[in-house]
C-alpha cells in the first residue's frame, strides 16, 4: 500500500499546570494509505480529537513525527502550516462548522478564494458539489438559517471543495439524528470513492464505526487496534 500519512512514535502531553501534565497520546504509530476511509474510535478522552488535531496541523506533537505525503508537518512553523491546511486538508467538525458571516455558497467557496481560484472554477465546483450533496436550495442562506444536518452537508462541501488530499471529520454525526447521520456518511463514502480523497473520521458512533474500511481504536492515548474491515480501497 502507498502510505499517505505516516505517524511515528507520536506523543502528546498537555501541561495542565506546572506540576501536573496529562498524556493524551502515547507512542502512537500509524500508517494511512492514499484513498483510505479510516475511522478512529474509542471512548471519550481516549485521544481521538487530539490525534485528529495533530493530523490537521492544528496542534504540534510533544514528541514523534507526522508526515503528510512527503511533508513532515510536525516540524513546520505556524506560517508554513496555513498553506498546508488550505491546500491539502479539509475539516469537518462536530458543530459550528461554518463561518457565520458568510452564506452557504460563500462558505463553500471560502478556501478556493483563499487559494485564488478563478470565479468560474469556484462556480462550477459549487454547482457540482451542491448537486452531489443536495444543497442547491440552501446556497444563498446563512448558517443561522440552516438546520444541523444542512450545516454539516455544507461543511462537507466546503471541506472538499478545494480538492484536498485528506478530509478530517471530528465526530461529524454527533449532533445529527440517525437519518441525517446516514446521509452524511453516504456522502463521505461517495466523495472518497469519486474524488479519491482520503477520509479520516473520529467517532464513537456505531453508525460510523460500521462504515469503516480501516478501523483504528484508541484507549487512554494508545492504539489498541488497527485493522482493515474490508479490503476495497479504490
Amino acid at each position: 500500500m502507498d502510505a499517505f500519512i505516516e505517524i511515528a512514535h507520536l506523543h502528546k502531553t498537555f501541561e495542565t499546570s506546572r506540576e501536573v501534565s496529562t498524556p493524551a497520546l502515547i507512542d502512537v504509530s500509524l500508517t494511512i494509505p492514499h484513498g483510505d476511509f479510516a475511522v478512529i474510535s474509542g471512548p471519550s478522552g481516549s485521544g481521538k480529537t487530539t490525534l485528529l488535531n495533530l493530523l490537521g496541523a492544528l496542534d504540534s506533537p510533544s514528541k514523534g513525527t507526522i508526515s503528510l505525503g512527503q511533508t513532515m508537518i510536525s516540524k513546520l512553523k505556524e506560517a508554513e502550516l496555513s498553506p498546508i491546511r488550505r491546500d491539502r486538508i479539509g475539516f469537518v467538525f462536530q458543530t459550528h462548522n461554518l463561518i457565520p458571516v458568510l452564506s452557504a455558497r460563500q462558505n463553500i467557496c471560502y478556501v478556493m478564494r483563499l487559494q485564488g481560484r478563478s470565479q468560474q472554477e469556484q462556480e462550477s465546483r459549487v454547482a457540482e458539489l451542491a448537486g452531489k450533496l443536495d444543497i442547491e436550495q440552501l446556497l444563498d442562506k446563512h448558517p443561522d438559517q440552516l438546520s444541523g444536518g444542512q450545516q454539516q452537508r455544507v461543511a462537507v462541501a466546503r471541506a472538499v471543495a478545494s480538492r484536498p488530499q485528506l478530509l478530517l471529520a471530528d465526530e461529524p454525526t454527533a449532533s445529527l439524528d440517525s437519518t441525517n447521520a446516514e446521509r452524511l456518511l453516504d456522502l463521505l463514502e461517495q466523495l472518497n470513492h469519486d474524488e479519491g480523497v482520503t477520509v479520516l473520521i473520529s467517532s464513537h458512533d456505531s453508525l460510523v464505526i460500521n462504515r469503516a474500511r480501516h478501523s483504528i481504536v484508541l484507549r487512554d492515548g494508545r492504539v489498541v487496534a488497527d485493522h482493515y474491515e474490508r479490503n476495497d480501497i479504490p
Binding site: G56, L58, S82, R85, R86, F91, Y110, L114
Partner: peptide, 12 residues
C-alpha cells in the same frame, strides 16, 4: 469562528 478559519487554512 476564527478557529474554523484557521483550520481551513486562513493565515493569521
Amino acid at each position: 469562528e476564527f478557529g474554523i478559519m484557521i483550520a481551513v487554512g486562513t493565515s493569521f
